[in-house]
Protein backbone atom coordinates (compact mmCIF):
# COMPACT_ATOMS: atom_id res chain seq x y z
CA UNK A 1 0.00 0.00 0.00
CA UNK A 2 1.27 3.46 -0.83
CA UNK A 3 2.10 5.87 1.90
CA UNK A 4 2.53 9.60 2.12
CA UNK A 5 5.47 11.17 3.90
CA UNK A 6 4.89 14.81 4.69
CA UNK A 7 6.73 17.25 6.90
CA UNK A 8 4.27 19.06 9.14
CA UNK A 9 5.63 21.86 11.31
CA UNK A 10 9.12 20.41 11.00
CA UNK A 11 8.18 16.82 11.87
CA UNK A 12 8.03 14.09 9.27
CA UNK A 13 4.72 12.28 9.29
CA UNK A 14 4.14 9.03 7.47
CA UNK A 15 0.57 7.97 6.83
CA UNK A 16 -1.37 5.32 4.96
CA UNK A 17 -4.57 7.32 5.05
CA UNK A 18 -6.60 7.55 1.80
CA UNK A 19 -4.56 9.98 -0.35
CA UNK A 20 -7.79 11.60 -1.62
CA UNK A 21 -8.45 12.87 1.93
CA UNK A 22 -8.26 16.66 2.11
CA UNK A 23 -5.14 17.83 3.91
CA UNK A 24 -7.32 19.84 6.31
CA UNK A 25 -9.11 16.69 7.44
CA UNK A 26 -5.81 14.82 7.85
CA UNK A 27 -4.34 17.64 9.95
CA UNK A 28 -7.41 17.90 12.15
CA UNK A 29 -8.43 14.28 12.58
CA UNK A 30 -5.19 12.32 12.32
CA UNK A 31 -2.61 14.76 13.63
CA UNK A 32 -5.15 16.46 15.92
CA UNK A 33 -3.88 19.85 14.77
CA UNK A 34 -7.28 21.47 15.10
CA UNK A 35 -6.07 25.04 14.76
CA UNK A 36 -6.73 24.65 11.04
CA UNK A 37 -10.46 25.34 10.71
CA UNK A 38 -12.88 24.23 8.03
CA UNK A 39 -15.40 26.95 7.23
CA UNK A 40 -16.64 25.76 3.85
CA UNK A 41 -14.54 22.85 2.57
CA UNK A 42 -14.57 24.38 -0.90
CA UNK A 43 -11.69 26.86 -0.90
CA UNK A 44 -14.04 29.82 -0.57
CA UNK A 45 -13.41 31.14 2.94
CA UNK A 46 -9.72 30.60 3.70
CA UNK A 47 -10.23 29.44 7.31
CA UNK A 48 -8.17 26.32 6.51
CA UNK A 49 -5.20 28.22 5.07
CA UNK A 50 -1.82 26.58 5.73
CA UNK A 51 1.56 27.17 4.12
CA UNK A 52 2.73 24.49 1.68
CA UNK A 53 6.31 24.87 0.44
CA UNK A 54 6.15 28.57 1.21
CA UNK A 55 2.78 29.31 -0.34
CA UNK A 56 -0.60 29.88 1.33
CA UNK A 57 -3.10 27.26 0.23
CA UNK A 58 -6.55 26.14 1.27
CA UNK A 59 -5.83 22.83 2.93
CA UNK A 60 -9.41 21.70 2.29
CA UNK A 61 -8.56 21.51 -1.42
CA UNK A 62 -5.16 19.83 -1.19
CA UNK A 63 -5.44 16.05 -1.52
CA UNK A 64 -3.23 14.38 1.06
CA UNK A 65 -1.45 12.41 -1.68
CA UNK A 66 -0.07 15.59 -3.15
CA UNK A 67 1.70 16.55 0.08
CA UNK A 68 4.14 13.66 -0.22
CA UNK A 69 7.64 15.07 0.17
CA UNK A 70 6.36 18.56 0.91
CA UNK A 71 6.56 20.91 3.88
CA UNK A 72 3.41 22.10 5.59
CA UNK A 73 3.25 24.83 8.23
CA UNK A 74 0.09 25.21 10.28
CA UNK A 75 -0.85 27.81 12.87
CA UNK A 76 0.52 25.49 15.55
CA UNK A 77 4.03 26.14 14.16
CA UNK A 78 3.94 29.72 15.44
CA UNK A 79 3.21 30.50 19.06
CA UNK A 80 1.13 28.94 21.77
CA UNK A 81 -1.19 30.92 24.04
CA UNK A 82 1.49 31.56 26.66
CA UNK A 83 4.18 32.36 24.12
CA UNK A 84 2.59 33.99 21.12
CA UNK A 85 4.48 34.92 18.00
CA UNK A 86 4.80 38.74 17.86
CA UNK A 87 2.44 38.79 14.88
CA UNK A 88 -0.15 36.93 16.89
CA UNK A 89 0.35 39.16 19.91
CA UNK A 90 -0.21 42.22 17.78
CA UNK A 91 -3.43 40.81 16.33
CA UNK A 92 -4.73 40.19 19.86
CA UNK A 93 -3.70 43.60 21.19
CA UNK A 94 -5.23 45.45 18.28
CA UNK A 95 -8.54 43.57 18.39
CA UNK A 96 -7.94 42.36 14.83
CA UNK A 97 -10.37 39.47 15.18
CA UNK A 98 -13.50 38.65 17.14
CA UNK A 99 -14.90 35.13 16.97
CA UNK A 100 -11.50 33.83 15.93
CA UNK A 101 -12.70 31.08 13.62
CA UNK A 102 -11.12 32.66 10.54
CA UNK A 103 -8.06 33.78 12.48
CA UNK A 104 -5.65 30.83 12.11
CA UNK A 105 -6.18 31.05 8.36
CA UNK A 106 -5.66 34.82 8.40
CA UNK A 107 -2.45 34.35 10.39
CA UNK A 108 -1.08 31.83 7.90
CA UNK A 109 -1.96 34.00 4.89
CA UNK A 110 -0.24 36.88 6.60
CA UNK A 111 2.89 34.87 7.43
CA UNK A 112 3.09 33.62 3.84
CA UNK A 113 2.78 37.21 2.59
CA UNK A 114 5.45 38.60 4.90
CA UNK A 115 7.93 35.78 4.23
CA UNK A 116 7.88 36.68 0.56
CA UNK A 117 7.34 40.42 0.93
CA UNK A 118 8.30 41.99 4.26
CA UNK A 119 7.07 45.44 3.23
CA UNK A 120 3.74 44.97 1.52
CA UNK A 121 1.67 47.96 0.46
CA UNK A 122 -1.93 48.30 1.57
CA UNK A 123 -3.01 46.97 -1.83
CA UNK A 124 -0.72 43.96 -1.50
CA UNK A 125 -2.10 43.19 1.96
CA UNK A 126 -5.61 43.24 0.58
CA UNK A 127 -4.68 40.99 -2.34
CA UNK A 128 -2.99 38.49 -0.03
CA UNK A 129 -5.97 38.36 2.34
CA UNK A 130 -8.80 38.53 -0.18
CA UNK A 131 -9.29 34.80 0.22
CA UNK A 132 -9.79 35.02 3.99
CA UNK A 133 -13.42 35.76 4.73
CA UNK A 134 -14.06 37.39 8.11
CA UNK A 135 -17.62 38.22 9.07
CA UNK A 136 -17.01 39.79 12.49
CA UNK A 137 -14.38 42.46 12.22
CA UNK A 138 -14.99 44.38 9.01
CA UNK A 139 -11.22 43.96 8.48
CA UNK A 140 -10.49 47.50 9.70
CA UNK A 141 -8.50 46.55 12.78
CA UNK A 142 -6.88 43.69 10.90
CA UNK A 143 -5.49 46.11 8.30
CA UNK A 144 -4.34 48.47 11.04
CA UNK A 145 -2.62 45.62 12.89
CA UNK A 146 -0.87 44.41 9.74
CA UNK A 147 0.35 47.94 9.13
CA UNK A 148 1.94 47.95 12.58
CA UNK A 149 3.36 44.45 12.11
CA UNK A 150 5.08 45.63 8.93
CA UNK A 151 6.32 48.89 10.42
CA UNK A 152 7.68 47.14 13.49
CA UNK A 153 9.13 44.22 11.52
CA UNK A 154 7.37 41.76 13.78
CA UNK A 155 7.41 38.83 11.38
CA UNK A 156 11.16 38.38 11.79
CA UNK A 157 11.27 36.83 15.21
Amino acid sequence: MEYVSVEVNGHTRVTYTDPATPLAVFLREELELRGTKIGCGNGECGACTVIMDGRAVCSCLVPLGRTDGREIDTVESLGDPDDLHPIQRKLVERGAFQCGFCTPGVVMSLVALLRGNPNPTDAEMRIALQGNLCRCSGYVKLLEAIGEIVREGLHER
Partner: peptide, 17 residues
Protein backbone atom coordinates in the same frame (compact mmCIF):
# COMPACT_ATOMS: atom_id res chain seq x y z
CA UNK B 1 -8.07 42.81 24.25
CA UNK B 2 -10.43 39.92 24.54
CA UNK B 3 -9.64 37.32 27.18
CA UNK B 4 -9.84 34.46 24.67
CA UNK B 5 -7.54 36.20 22.18
CA UNK B 6 -4.34 34.20 22.77
CA UNK B 7 -6.17 30.86 22.53
CA UNK B 8 -7.96 31.88 19.35
CA UNK B 9 -5.01 33.39 17.51
CA UNK B 10 -2.85 30.35 18.23
CA UNK B 11 -5.46 27.88 17.05
CA UNK B 12 -5.88 26.39 20.53
CA UNK B 13 -9.41 27.60 21.25
CA UNK B 14 -11.87 24.72 21.19
CA UNK B 15 -14.93 25.27 19.04
CA UNK B 16 -17.67 22.67 18.73
CA UNK B 17 -16.04 21.50 15.48
Amino acid sequence: PQFEGPAKVSGRAEYTH
